[in-house]
Design a binder for these strands. Structure first.
Lengths: 175, 175
DNA sequence: TCAGATGGGTTTGTTTTTCCAACTCATCTC
DNA sequence: GAGATGAGTTGGAAAAACAAACCCATCTGA
């Protein structure tokens, strides 16, 4: 798989084995691609605030607890990525508010699943910092289901079909 | 809300306005708490590999493209957090494999929603790097639903009920 | 009227992380 | 025994995060 390097080793400058550092072509993957956009520190918290309607710079600083300069970098990136837009809510003095685009709102499922996990595993479902109510009248407990059959998705029911070389093709993982 | 600082300003050493940097008590939130554990660079990709069954150090290095030292730090942290376990798959020579704990597997919904977003918004649902098949026989397209009513969750149907001060209580965000 | 506060950032200097390449060490393979 | 393999660790340079201060236009209250 990394065979091409074998041929050149004999004549390489380095006299000892040079083992490759992190390969430059990692697995092509939508998860990685998404995280490249929103996986930096604070980015998803920005999205959380913005989805809650708290899109002003000082609200973000306060509610997230991020340094102002970092926040300002993140905001630029998220706007560039088409996840947020910048709205002027006042001329004279010019003041702005960040809001989610439709693509940004499409990231809410990520926030919900993160919240679910934290509620379950970090807060034991008691004394939750925030409760989200669904319009059906109940507390929202998000469940990921399969669009085709509607069933909740369990790890054992999944098989990965990688489209690129270098993948291990597997079904259930647990022994 | 930050009123306590008012009184002391007159006598503070700094002659000019000192505006607080990132407040030290950001919003208490399960999303932030979860990200504190798995939000560092590469952590969720480690989980991806491990859920796919590729839990050996060199596989992780190759498939993720992370520096070995960073990976080794991440692995320690994820094991400490109870998200991974380290299994010896060979004595003499001692060799290890990382596997997800049940809590780790519970993070799969996060991976799925991240993948969905990337598939939709970054790859236009064509030429996807990986297809996951559900046991029902169809390609898995994860949909987040409300456990109580079973309906897909839409942003407009949510209302946040923060349990801590400093929150803005809102329903639908869009104007 | 003007001292100070507010909103939305940028600048500057320091501390942490990341990154990369190389190194280790025990074992297995040719 | 020469070299490869797995699973890391080490050391030094580069990049990011951090904190505090600064900026500038506007508004506010005494």
């Amino acid at each position: 798989m990394e065979k091409q390097t074998h041929l050149s080793w004999k004549t390489e400058p380095s006299p000892r084995l040079v083992r490759m550092a992190a390969t430059k072509d990692p697995r092509p993957c939508s998860i990685a691609d998404t995280l490249a956009l929103v996986g930096e520190k604070y980015s998803l918290l920005v999205l959380r605030e913005v989805c809650l309607g708290n899109g002003r710079f000082d609200q973000l600083v306060r509610n997230i607890g991020a340094p102002r300069d970092v926040l300002s970098t993140r905001l630029r990136r998220l706007v560039d990525a088409g996840i947020l837009t910048k709205h002027a809510y006042s001329e004279r003095p010019r003041r702005f508010e960040y809001r989610p685009t439709p693509a940004g709102l499409d990231l809410e499922p990520v926030l919900m699943t993160l919240k679910e996990w934290g509620d379950r595993h970090l807060h034991g479902n008691t004394g939750l910092p925030m409760i989200v109510e669904h319009d059906c009248g109940h507390e929202l407990v998000p469940v990921v289901t399969c669009r085709a059959c509607g069933d909740p998705v369990r790890h054992e029911d999944l098989t990965a079909h990688p489209q690129a070389p270098g993948w291990t093709l597997r079904g259930p993982v647990h022994p």
